[in-house]
Structures are given as structure tokens and as C-alpha cells.
Design a protein around this nucleic acid. Structure first.
Length: 557
RNA sequence: UGCCCGAUAGUAUAAUGGUAGUACGUCAGAUUCUGGCUCUGAAUGUUGGGGUUCGAGCCCUCAUCGGGCAACCA
């Protein structure tokens, strides 16, 4: 059927529709987007959505994307952040056409301000911050015009030049656009476009003491670069009339702004301000704590660029506030890791078993990844004494418990079928050891025993095991939407978001673990090596658990 | 109380005036040397009232609900 191919095409999001329409109408030969971070913090997965949108759009339609740092506020911005932002974007796998800075345009922006002054569309205001706020009016009442609103162009020019020359203190004077003090849009009530800041800028140093505000920098920067589609988040909708106003009055290239909803995910918070609190108040170790939804945190946690991009693709682009279910993110990373991760056996909470009818040691073969037809195979040492997971044995098992129990049989993964003969207890009644027997004909790959078992367990040989540290992460918050709960969001932090297992027992193959490799600890979850470890004591982060239908089954009781 | 957005299963996302579909999640089952993966099946949806139309999730209108807007932040 000819229509099948078309049917499989993903439908367009509203921004893609706009782009296709613009291209079809011949409005632009090709598109140019931009990603405009402010270098005052680390990127998070919300930014990843924006990055994927901006860069993805350009890729899809044969355009380009600029990386432009929106560095108009010298007091909060720093080169440290510039570097981390660039690293994160590269890690996600995107390349920008040009690395640019709003501060590159300071001289041009200054010229733009002069044009406005000459047109009688901007004026220097001596009012104080409080007076300006009072003049603004309220959403339901119009504002009052500043007494300085009607200065002559010449006077304004001189005053503005003096501002630049450093003749005034911070707050003494500002430059305002002359728009409309009665506008129903508060942002149009003569917005401030330049303020005095005697501060050192991370790139321009002490060259300037006046800095443009966002509204006077962003749109013009877009225009200077010839950005065709300037995509930002919903809270800028009300800035759009101003964005267009400056472009119109300045008669410069008409970049167009489009807005989409920022990303929210259940059990997370998503703002630099909140991250800062979490770090400063030691709820997490740092910005790259694996529980943080920062790109650096997620990278350390073991997320892959592909999984994040796939997630961004699946959630779509929308014009309304959304709260994405965390399980979708988990699905995306599991889907990716299932195909890539090397399988290894690690016992988290050991229970020793002795195979009473087995002696010596042998090397068994086990697949590195059963999802891969051409999988490599590794050796796993098997011997008389093994560790299994304590939770894989129950003396009095409930129905549908497929694991070990007295008299019950299970398969040891890639090894033999064993039967539990006896549970040894200490004088307090705790089970300290299991006596089992194995079935020699049941060896993995050459099983002639004819025995069917329901369960398969992971295990490690006591004599060959290495100990590793495991860091098990869980959601950072106990509630779906911590920002919308009563009180402080930090009241809802999950106290069990990190569980450390100092000594887990791992099969020896894990000794060769590498940082860029991903692992699935069989029946447990996906893990990756953490930078905190050493040769002697490796540390692994749990990226995500495996789906666990047995855990669900248990909860029902 | 002014202006601006928005509203489709639990959560997201399609249907562009003509059969409400998809994914995640949930539930049930099959399969399994990972209670993973895979496969099959099921339940759950157009905020409400009017109107236009042969026909409305879609267009108009009123209402309701949700979000945003009064930083010398971005």
C-alpha cells in the first residue's frame, strides 16, 4: 500500500508546521535558529528539550543553529558556565554554526539606542527604581508618564553618552523606550532598556558600565544574526510585542519569536534557582549529583545522549504547561541501554550457598548481550561456594514465588540447575547459608536433564568475587509536583533518594569496567562506572532499575 | 479586576469539517536460562452550554477551569 510510508511519518509539531509553511512560501531560503543560554548556571534536561528543538529543526530543514550566550547581566554570569554549557551541548551531539555572545553586540546595541533616541522613541529617566515602579500602574490601571519623558533628543543623547562614560552611579539614570504608559501589556509601559552597572563583565571586562536589558538585547541579537525562527519559552509571550516593536522601529531584519512550553517532569524540580538551593543546602553533593536533572548529573547517572534526544522527541512541543510522567524518561533510557549494556552478575545482598555435590572450579560462558545476535561471550567462574541474592530465597514462599525455597529448583544463570536441600541457621534463627545440590546434566547450553524450572538467578563465585560500591538512586522528591505543593519544595525531598551499598559482590569480568561502557547487572538494573571510584574500589551508579513486575505483584498483598 | 495564552484517556501526543488513533503507564495473558526484552489482548478520552453545517475534537459564541503578565533578571 502506497499510503503506508506516509502514515509512518511522524506528524509535525506546531513549530515545524510554521517552518514548513515559511519555506513553502519562499519566505526564507533556509532557516537559522539559535540556542540562547544565559551563562549563569548549568544546563538541565529542560534546556535539552530546547536544544533538541532548535538544533533538530535546523537539521531537519537543512538550516543552521547558532549558540549565543545571553550575557547582558555581568553580575550573575561567568565563563565557568560558558564552558560547561558548551560541553553539555557537544555531549548531546549537536554542533553550532557560530559561537556568539550578546556582548559581541554591545556597540551595535548602543547605536540602536541612539537611533531610538533620535526618533524620539527613547529617553533618559532620572527617576528612582521605586518611582518607576509606581509610574507603571497596575494591570487594571494605566501608568503615569515620567516627568523626564519629554526631554529633547539632544539632551537625551548627551545624557546617554554620559551614562556610558561613567558619570553616574548605579540606579541614578536609566534609558527607557517610549512606548505607551497606558498599554494593557505592562511590558510596553516604557520599559527600561539600559541600566548602569559598574561591574566587571566576563568578556568585555570594564569596557562598559551600561548594559542593555534582555528585551533590548535578545531580539536585536536575533536580527543581527539573521535568525529566522527565534524559539523561546511561554513566559516570553507577553514580550513578543516589544520584540517586534524594536525590530520595527529600528527597521532591521524581522526575526520572529515563537513560544513553547518549558519541560516539567514528575518528581523533579526544574529551575536553576531551586538547583542552587539543593546544592548550597547540601541536599545533593553538587550540580552533577546523579540525582540532579542537570545534563551533567544525568550524564554521570548514566543517561545517554540518544535517550535524552529520544525523550525530547517523544514529549513533543506544546503551547500549554505540561507535566511529563517520569516513567517516560525511564522508558527511554531503558530502551537505549537494553540494546547497549553489557550483562554482568552482581550480588547486592549476599547469601552464601554451598553446592555440596560439586568440587573444583570451571569457567562458564555467558552472553554479554542477548539482544545482540553477534554478542560477545565472557567467562564466568563457577565453584562450590557461591553468593546469591538474599531475597532470592524464602523459607516459606508465597504462591508464584519462582525463586529458591527448600526443596525447590532454580537455574543459576549460564550455569546449572540447583536444588535447595537445607537452610542453615544461626542460634537466632537467621539463615546463614544454604546447602544445595546441582544437576550435572543441566549445564547451560548442553542441558539434557529435561528439567524445567520457573526461575533463574544471578550469582557470583565466592572465591572469585570482587567487591564494588553501588550507589542506588531514586527520585529526589516524594511527590509528583514538588513546586506546586504547600510550603517549601524542599519539604518534599525523598530521604531515600540515595542508598549506598559499600560492598556488593561482582563477577570478576567487571574489574575491566570502563567509563564509556554501560552495564546491566542482571535482574537488578543499569549501571555505569562513577568517577569517585578507584582501581581497588570501583563505584557504580545505578542509572535506572529494570522493570520489576514481581515487585508489583508483591505490593498487591 | 485589565490584557495575553491554553484545554483530547492517568500522563503526553495525533486527527487541519468526514471511522477519535499512537506512545508511556495500568490491567490480563503468552513467551523466557534476566519476574528484563519481545508478543497478544483489555480498560480509560474530546471541560460545559448554545450556534453554523448533511456532518464539529476542529469553525463561531458564551461560560468554566488552568497558566502567564506590574525585576534597573533572563
Amino acid at each position: 500500500m502506497a499510503t503506508n510510508i506516509q502514515e509512518e511519518e511522524r506528524s509535525l509539531n506546531f513549530i515545524e508546521e510554521i517552518v514548513e509553511e515559511d519555506l513553502r512560501a519562499g519566505k526564507y531560503a533556509s532557516i537559522l535558529t539559535r540556542f540562547p543560554p544565559e551563562p549563569n548556571g548549568y544546563l538541565h534536561i529542560g534546556h535539552a528539550k530546547s536544544i533538541a528543538l532548535n538544533f533538530g529543526l535546523a537539521q531537519k530543514y537543512g538550516g543552521k543553529t547558532n549558540l549565543r550566550f545571553d550575557d547582558t547581566n555581568p553580575v550573575t554570569e561567568d565563563t565557568e558556565y560558558v564552558d560547561s554549557i558548551k560541553e553539555d551541548i557537544k555531549w548531546l551531539g549537536f554542533e553550532w554554526a557560530h559561537e556568539l555572545y550578546a556582548s559581541d553586540y554591545f556597540e551595535q546595541l548602543y547605536e540602536f539606542a541612539i537611533i531610538l533616541i533620535n526618533k524620539g522613541l527613547a529617553y533618559v529617566d532620572d527617576s528612582t527604581s521605586e518611582q518607576i515602579a509606581a509610574q507603571k500602574g497596575t494591570p487594571t490601571e494605566p501608568g503615569q508618564e515620567s516627568p523626564f519623558r519629554n526631554r529633547s533628543a539632544d539632551e537625551n543623547l548627551q545624557l546617554f553618552a554620559d551614562m556610558r562614560a561613567g558619570k553616574y552611579k548605579e540606579g541614578e539614570k536609566v534609558l527607557r523606550a517610549k512606548v505607551d504608559m497606558a498599554s494593557p501589556n505592562m511590558l510596553m509601559r516604557d520599559p527600561i532598556i539600559y541600566r548602569i552597572k559598574h561591574a566587571h563583565h566576563h568578556r568585555t571586562g570594564d569596557e562598559w558600565c551600561i548594559y542593555p536589558l534582555y528585551d533590548f538585547a535578545h531580539g536585536q541579537s536575533d536580527s543581527i544574526e539573521g535568525i529566522t525562527h527565534s524559539i523561546c519559552t511561554l513566559e516570553f509571550i507577553s514580550h513578543r510585542p516589544l520584540y517586534d516593536w524594536f525590530i520595527e522601529k529600528l527597521e532591521i531584519f524581522p526575526s520572529k519569536q515563537y513560544e513553547f512550553a518549558r519541560l516539567n517532569i514528575t518528581y523533579m524540580v526544574m529551575s536553576k534557582r531551586k538547583f542552587l538551593q539543593l546544592v548550597n543546602e547540601k541536599f545533593v553533593s553538587d550540580w552533577d549529583d546523579p540525582r540532579m536533572p542537570t545534563i551533567s548529573g544525568m550524564r554521570r547517572r548514566g543517561f545517554t545522549p540518544g535517550s535524552i534526544k529520544n525523550f525530547a522527541e517523544r514529549i513533543g512541543v506544546q503551547k500549554r504547561d505540561t507535566l511529563i510522567d517520569m516513567s517516560l524518561l525511564e522508558f527511554c533510557i531503558r530502551e537505549d541501554l537494553n540494546k547497549k549494556a553489557l550483562r554482568r552478575m552482581v550480588v547486592f545482598d549476599p547469601l552464601k550457598i554451598v553446592i555440596t555435590n560439586y568440587n573444583g572450579t570451571e569457567l562458564l560462558k555467558s552472553e554479554d548481550n542477548p539482544e545482540d545476535e553477534n554478542t560477545s561471550v565472557r567467562d564466568v567462574p563457577f565453584s562450590r561456594e557461591l553468593y546469591i541474592e538474599r531475597e532470592d530465597f524464602m523459607e516459606h514462599p508465597p504462591k508464584k514465588y519462582f525463586r529458591l525455597a527448600p526443596g525447590q529448583k532454580v537455574r543459576l544463570k549460564s550455569a546449572y540447575i540447583i536444588q535447595c536441600d537445607e537452610a542453615i541457621k544461626d542460634n537466632k534463627g537467621n539463615i546463614t547459608e544454604l546447602r544445595c545440590s546441582y544437576i550435572p546434566e543441566s549445564k547451560s547450553g548442553s542441558d539434557t536433564s529435561g528439567i524445567k524450572v520457573q526461575g533463574t538467578l544471578h550469582w557470583v563465585s565466592v572465591a572469585h568475587a570482587i567487591t564494588v560500591e553501588l550507589r542506588l538512586y531514586d527520585r529526589l522528591f516524594k511527590v509528583e509536583d514538588p513546586s506546586n505543593e504547600e510550603g517549601d519544595f524542599k519539604d518534599y525531598i525523598n530521604p531515600d533518594s540515595l542508598q549506598v551499598i559499600q560492598a556488593a559482590y561482582a563477577e570478576p569480568a567487571l574489574r575491566k569496567a570502563k567509563f564509556d561502557e554501560r552495564y546491566q547487572f542482571l535482574r537488578k538494573g543499569y549501571f555505569c562506572l562513577d568517577k569517585d571510584g578507584s582501581e581497588e574500589k570501583m563505584v557504580f551508579n545505578r542509572t535506572v532499575t529494570l522493570k520489576d513486575t514481581w515487585a508489583k505483584e508483591k505490593k498487591k498483598d
